[in-house]
Design a protein around this nucleic acid. Structure first.
Length: 570
RNA sequence: CGGGACGUGGCGCAGCCAGGUAGCGCACCUGCUUUGGGAGCAGGGGGUCGGGAGUUCAAAUCUCCCCGUCCCGACCA
């Protein structure tokens, strides 16, 4: 391939609104262009990388017995109504109406469709099945961002396993977990598997694969000691007990706290209480129902934990008016003491605590001497607090680390939600009907691509791992008119191609600096420079993009040297 | 959806406050010189100033409405 004939529109400046490194570099390197928010065109170079990632995933899926499908991306509403998700998916699903007036959806995932296909299977003997596809998913994201990292239209490898029983599901799940580990290794991604919440897909065991990066949108808690790792939405820690003063026999004492609206203010006030001796009272609306959520004063709520604990679909902080109507006070003076007409859910860090301070449900007043279990009608205890860096690992006690990360994959056990909804059964060895159990597993290809860039770049540009690079080698001809250079370059490019190396010949009539800079920006792993000096001296320059290492090679050794480099890094 | 910022050739920006000829750098085309780290000179092409109303003799500039884009928070591969 000749660079002069390829469409590689490199840019000196990144678009002004790009922030993430991968976004800037993919645009500057001529890999992607934006059509609208959340929708990107993959240019030839971008597609090459995308295809390489796809191939790696495909190989690993096939290795665990996956069978590739290609399902429609437009679905009739009826299928989604059957699973109950036509409504549950809300605004995130793109919907349209065809000329006959039939409602349609653009698929955001394919449990329903695969289940429909699976319905044809009637025997346990056909199981297990692992089915997958690479398909464009459409999701009307509230906020697309960071180039390819979060978009509304993207290719996902989604797979689904069908087993007769839990043990079978465990095996399919493990197979996927191992496949994913291999996939990320081959992509050059240092992904950690973390415990996760399964979101609105429904399911139990849920593992996300996370790549540490400041461009990520998730926080994970990780332990270097034992390898514990969990999404912050799920992570727990061991916190030390706090020695409370002896319990007073009498009821809580109300005292004035004029102007005090925050935990911090109350902590500083004379006669106040340190944050860890306060009860934080949050008023949340769970599916329309006002609920008091109690945490230790110095702890933060993880809303996802509240969702997981209660099964609520819709969770949001209550509006100030609703709070005042229910409790008679404004945020800053709220408490749960004596409240009996609202659900109260509390974090276990409050369990057994005494002599605590909290709002009195009267503006500018708090109450002290609260014995949580004696004075508050807690309806339910559930882990709700956000883990903080430095707290003890729940497994081994070492301090936890908190890291920002990109979610590059998610696998989880779905259960029988869809097979039940679609009335799917298979006959077992006793001729009894059994409802198969499903697992569901996804990797966003474009996101993985962006994650590779996030973790493989420098000031000069991208530095692709050989496994996904758009080309393995660029031959840079220093001076395009120098006949001997060009002849040698063409010959070597040919030989490299025959040896299975993907090579692009930079034959552009440009100054060498431009070509060097472009090669580095685009991120091709190896560069062979051919110019008058080298041709005459009988020594060409070979540069390794990732390390900057330069070495001289004789022209007749160049092919062998490059083949070896490519093979050892592949 | 809440908060903030922005919209001027392909990309990066100035001009707007104080209304009057659309400008700069990069990129692009032609020619000459140049060519081992983003060349120089000369000539040239390309812009409904996001859209629509309004004010005005006159609007990129002022007013109103709409649209779009980005960033921070609630959602997910």
């Amino acid at each position: 391939m000749r660079w002069s004939q390829l469409f590689i529109p490199t840019l000196r400046d990144a678009p002004g609104d790009a922030e993430a490194a991968s976004h800037k570099l993919l645009v500057r390197g001529g890999y992607i262009r934006q059509l609208q928010s959340g929708h990107y065109s993959l240019l030839p170079l971008g597609l090459r990388v995308h295809e390489k990632i796809t191939s790696i995933i495909r190989e690993e899926m096939n290795r665990i017995g996956g069978q590739e499908f290609l399902l429609p991306c437009m679905h009739p509403a009826t299928v989604w109504r059957t699973s109950g998700r036509w409504d549950a998916m809300g605004d995130e699903m793109f919907r349209l109406v065809d000329r006959k007036g039939a409602e349609q959806a653009l698929g955001m995932t394919h449990e329903e469709i695969f289940s429909t296909v699976f319905a044809e299977i009637g025997s346990y003997r056909a199981l297990p099945q692992i089915w997958y596809q690479f398909q464009i998913k459409f999701r009307d994201e509230p906020r697309p961002k960071a180039g390819l990292l979060r978009v509304r239209e993207f290719t996902m490898k989604d797979s689904y396993s069908f087993d007769v029983d839990e043990a079978g599901l465990d095996a399919s799940f493990d197979a996927h977990q191992h496949a994913y580990v291999r996939i990320y290794e081959r992509l050059g991604l240092d992904a950690v598997a973390v415990e996760a919440s399964s979101g609105n897909m429904g399911g139990s065991d849920s593992v996300e694969f996370m790549v540490a990066s400041p461009a990520g949108e998730d926080d994970i808690a990780r332990c270097d000691g034992c390898g514990y790792a969990a999404n912050i939405e799920r992570a727990t820690s061991t916190i030390s007990d706090i020695a409370d003063p002896p319990t007073a026999d009498d009821a809580p004492v109300r005292f004035p706290t004029p102007g005090v609206r925050t935990i911090a203010q109350l902590a500083e006030m004379d006669g106040g209480a340190p944050a860890d001796r306060q009860i934080k009272t949050l008023v949340m609306v769970l599916d329309g129902r006002l609920t008091l959520v109690l945490l230790r004063g110095d702890h933060n709520l993880v809303e996802q934990k509240l969702v997981d604990a209660t099964g609520a679909i819709d969770v949001a902080p209550a509006e100030a008016d609703a709070i005042h109507a229910a409790l008679g006070a404004h945020p800053g003076s709220l408490g749960a003491v004596g409240v009996t007409d609202l659900d109260i859910i509390a974090d276990p860090a409050l369990r057994g605590r005494t002599a605590m301070t909290t709002g009195a449900n009267e503006d500018d007043f708090h109450v002290g001497g609260v014995d949580v279990e004696r004075d508050i009608a807690v309806g339910r205890w559930a882990d709700l607090r956000e883990v903080k860096a430095g707290e003890a690992c729940p497994e081994c006690g070492q301090p936890l680390l908190i890291e920002r990360a990109i979610e590059v994959g998610h696998i989880f056990k779905l259960g029988r939600k869809y097979t039940e909804a679609f009335g799917i059964t298979v006959l077992d060895e006793n001729s009894e009907a059994r409802v198969p159990i499903m697992g569901c597993y996804g990797i966003g290809v474009g996101r993985a691509l962006a994650a590779v860039v996030e973790t493989h770049h420098d000031e000069q540009g991208i530095s692709w791992p050989v496994s996904v690079a758009p080309f393995h080698v660029v031959i840079t001809v220093v001076k395009a008119e120098h006949r001997e250079s060009m002849q040698m370059a063409e010959r070597l490019a040919d030989d490299l191609s025959h040896a299975g190396v993907e090579v692009v010949l930079d034959d552009r009539d440009a100054r060498p600096g431009v070509k060097f800079a472009d090669a580095e920006l685009v991120g091709i792993p190896f560069r062979l420079t051919i110019g008058p000096n080298g041709v005459e001296a009988g020594e060409l320059e070979l540069v390794v993009r990732s390390t900057g290492e330069k070495r001289g090679v004789a022209p007749d050794q160049a092919v062998a040297a490059l083949v070896e480099l490519v093979d050892t890094h592949r």
